[in-house]
């Protein structure tokens, strides 16, 4: 039968070409979906302006990206891991056990986390304490811890709108949630005095107290969103009185649909985050495997291009998209040029 012959020869061709797989010539990047849009912007510009192919950028999450980075050295492993949180000692140990000894840490800037509601809704001015009193499982009333009785924002603080509390917050797999927990909920916990009561109850154990702070109410007013910000936006579109948690860049692309709330009286902008006035922000990083620097063509050039003033500077496309530029960019540029591996975590 002719078709059997064709199939057999096709299989043969497949087998031959499998063995003739050529060396990888494009950079491979994976990791945080928060860093992904920035990395894609840089990758695109890099492909346009250099004679190297455009890097392949994958999402998947910070933790997954770092794990992939630490899988070993070689063309089958990625070159760069994007991360919206700092690398952990466990990652470094994992890397070392797989022969990945030299890693460069590059801080590309800061990401602001904003609270926003439907554009036609009421205006909100929050403080971390408001969020704690709205979402925590137990809050302080008259010096005692009680199960959260607040139904509307006006119950939380009289000058907030009398609107049912409904919040869409990032799910626990998101790096954004960590920032929300630490910079909003825990800060509010301390502000309201709940932290001290928790600490006392736990015999002065700060860690246990922090954990108690982060216990959120489970009666449906706080909804974890495991998807992307687009999902949060769709939820807010359907539920006009809800408040959602977004990244600054996402909000900046959807200012016609979202009304942003102030935090501690500060409006989140690239500037107010850069000066540290707006409290809820976090640094963004990427990690490079130094062993790949002279193996994968264009890797060093890509890294230097990423942190160049043209891209990551205050007037570059990244800042325009919503990245808060790092004031210490010059230091990063120098470190990258010298390929300085990161020092042990302190």
């Amino acid at each position: 039968m002719t078709f059997l012959k064709t199939a057999a020869s096709a299989l043969a061709i497949g087998a031959i070409s499998a063995s003739a797989a050529t060396a990888r010539d494009q950079i491979q990047i994976a990791g945080s979906s928060t860093v992904l849009p920035y990395a894609a912007i840089v990758a695109e510009a890099f492909g346009e302006n250099f004679d190297f192919p455009t890097p392949v950028v994958e999402g998947g999450g910070s933790g997954a990206g770092r794990k992939k980075l630490c899988e070993g050295v070689g063309e089958n492993t990625i070159d760069i891991a994007n991360s919206s949180s700092r690398i952990k000692q466990s990652d470094i140990d994992n890397c070392a056990s797989n022969g990945v000894t030299e890693i460069q840490e590059v801080r590309i800037g800061y990401d602001g986390i904003v609270f926003a509601s439907d554009i036609n809704g009421a205006e909100f001015a929050f403080t971390p304490a408001d969020w704690y009193n709205a979402l925590a499982k137990q809050v302080v009333v008259d010096g005692n811890l009680v199960d959260n009785p607040n139904k509307t924002w006006a119950d939380v603080r009289a000058d907030l709108p009398a609107q049912d509390i409904m919040a869409f917050i990032p799910g626990t797999k998101h790096g954004t949630r960590e920032v929300f927990d630490v910079k909003v909920i825990e800060a509010g916990c301390e502000e309201t005095g709940a932290f001290d009561i928790f600490k006392e109850a736990n015999g002065g154990d700060k860690k246990a107290a922090g954990k108690s702070c982060n216990a959120l109410r489970t009666d449906g007013v706080s909804v974890d969103i495991d998807g992307d910000y687009t999902e949060t936006l769709a939820r807010i579109d359907a539920n006009k009185t809800a408040i959602g948690v977004f990244g600054l860049s996402f909000y900046q692309n959807n200012t016609d649909k979202l009304r942003v709330a102030t935090m501690g009286g500060v409006v989140p902008t690239v500037d107010s985050i850069a000066t540290g006035e707006y409290p809820v922000s976090r640094p963004l990083y990427f990690y490079i495997k130094n062993a790949h620097l002279d193996v994968i063509p264009g890797l060093q050039e890509y890294v230097e291009f990423f942190v160049s003033d043209d891209m990551a500077g205050p007037d570059g496309p990244l800042a325009e998209y919503g990245l808060v530029p790092d004031p210490e960019l010059a230091k990063t540029q120098e470190a990258v040029a010298n390929r300085t591996p990161m020092a042990p975590l302190n």
């Binding site: 061709i13 497949g14 031959i16 070409s17 003739a20 494009q26 994976a30 992904l36 990395a39 894609a40 990758a43 695109e44 492909g47 192919p53 455009t54 392949v56 950028v57 994958e58 999402g59 998947g60």
Partner: peptide, 14 residues
């Protein structure tokens, strides 16, 4: 890894 940002066209087969 196919859910990636890919801008380069793949070459001719194989």
């Amino acid at each position: 890894g196919m859910v990636a940002f890919v801008r380069e066209y793949p070459g001719a087969p194989p």
